[in-house]
Simulated scan of single mutants.
Amino acid sequence: MASGSAPAVLHLVLGEDEFLTERATTGVVSAVRAATPAGQDPPVVSRLGGPEVTAPQLFELLSPSLFGEARIVVVTGAAELGKDAQAAVLDAARDLPPETVLVVQHTGGGRAKTLVADLRKAGAEEHAAGKITRHMDVVGFVRSEFRGLDVRVAPEACEALVEAVGTDLRQLASACGQLVADTGGKVDVEAVRRYHSGFVGVSGFTVAERAVTGDVAGAIEALEWALHTGVPEVVLADALADAVNSIALVGTQRGVPPAELAKQGLPPWKVKKVTAQTRYWSIETLGTALQVVARLNGEVKGRAENPYYALERAVREVGSLASL
């Protein structure tokens, strides 16, 4: 929210992630309601939007109220608004009626793409809701969730939770809150294992660590058990890619201080372990392994008819390369 005692009256929630979009919108609504003076009714929330919304509908909601009641108008699917509807939103944004807060949800693309820049010029407070896909960023999301709950959690435990739950942000946020409630804020790797044992008994990192150290048989055994216990295929592929990429990062920058590697995405606590793993690799075999995990990323996301066989083949290939 904007600094100061009163919440902003114009908000742009920008991004394609539905969970983050709704969370940001809920945050605005809560802040506005919390700022309602004592004795006054809280603002009424109205939602509408999308390609079928007309300018008259928007004009009716965004015009001054005859009774002066406080309102929060949430325009959903603003990326697909028609030309007249866009104009109605923008006209209102530039001169909002008293006691009216406008929240516009926009993916950043679509036929109303230019509305984003126009709302920024109108002074909208922006809330990021872009999709988070990189493993490192998903783990960062988990860490920020715990910080928001006033709990400090080690990076290893955040990694373990992503392994256990997957990359769905809604599920991860719920898992963070539940872990904090169940453990009294004492969240560590063991707590994650205890509360998510169905997934973490064998994790994607177990599979990846065995593969990148040349233990092909052990990696395949761990892969089969991880799939049996429900670890998602995409998570397993991400873990293998993370292991190979981490080795490439450290192996090509020998002697670089851990703090410098951290700036490039590798946490200091991981550097020692990855450094030990680099002895199994050469520049040539690493290059091939990077191609393997890049191919696997597409295969587990729909390019392969059978993601399981794609995973098994990639694990065997990486393990064999580490054994050379």
Results as ranks from 00 to 15, higher is better:
4 G>M: 13
4 G>H: 06
5 S>V: 14
5 S>Y: 02
6 A>P: 00
6 A>Y: 00
6 A>R: 13
7 P>V: 06
7 P>G: 10
7 P>E: 00
7 P>W: 04
9 V>N: 00
9 V>S: 10
11 H>F: 01
11 H>M: 04
12 L>T: 06
12 L>V: 09
12 L>Y: 07
12 L>N: 03
14 L>T: 09
15 G>S: 12
15 G>C: 06
16 E>L: 02
16 E>P: 00
16 E>V: 04
17 D>T: 03
18 E>S: 14
18 E>F: 01
18 E>R: 15
19 F>W: 15
20 L>A: 11
24 A>H: 08
26 T>F: 00
27 G>L: 01
30 S>R: 15
30 S>I: 01
30 S>P: 00
31 A>N: 01
32 V>D: 03
33 R>S: 13
34 A>P: 02
34 A>C: 01
35 A>F: 06
35 A>N: 04
37 P>W: 11
38 A>Y: 00
39 G>P: 09
40 Q>E: 15
41 D>I: 04
43 P>K: 06
43 P>C: 06
43 P>W: 03
44 V>T: 15
44 V>N: 08
45 V>I: 13
45 V>W: 05
45 V>S: 05
45 V>H: 10
46 S>M: 03
49 G>A: 09
49 G>H: 09
49 G>L: 02
51 P>R: 07
51 P>A: 15
51 P>W: 02
53 V>D: 02
55 A>N: 11
55 A>K: 09
55 A>Q: 09
57 Q>I: 03
58 L>R: 13
59 F>C: 04
59 F>T: 14
60 E>Q: 14
60 E>N: 13
60 E>L: 10
61 L>N: 12
61 L>F: 04
63 S>Y: 02
63 S>F: 05
64 P>N: 07
64 P>G: 08
64 P>D: 05
64 P>H: 06
65 S>T: 10
65 S>G: 14
65 S>K: 11
67 F>H: 07
68 G>E: 08
71 R>K: 15
71 R>M: 07
72 I>W: 05
73 V>F: 06
73 V>I: 12
73 V>T: 12
73 V>E: 04
73 V>P: 08
73 V>C: 11
74 V>P: 08
74 V>N: 09
74 V>R: 03
76 T>A: 13
76 T>R: 15
77 G>W: 07
77 G>L: 08
78 A>Y: 08
78 A>P: 08
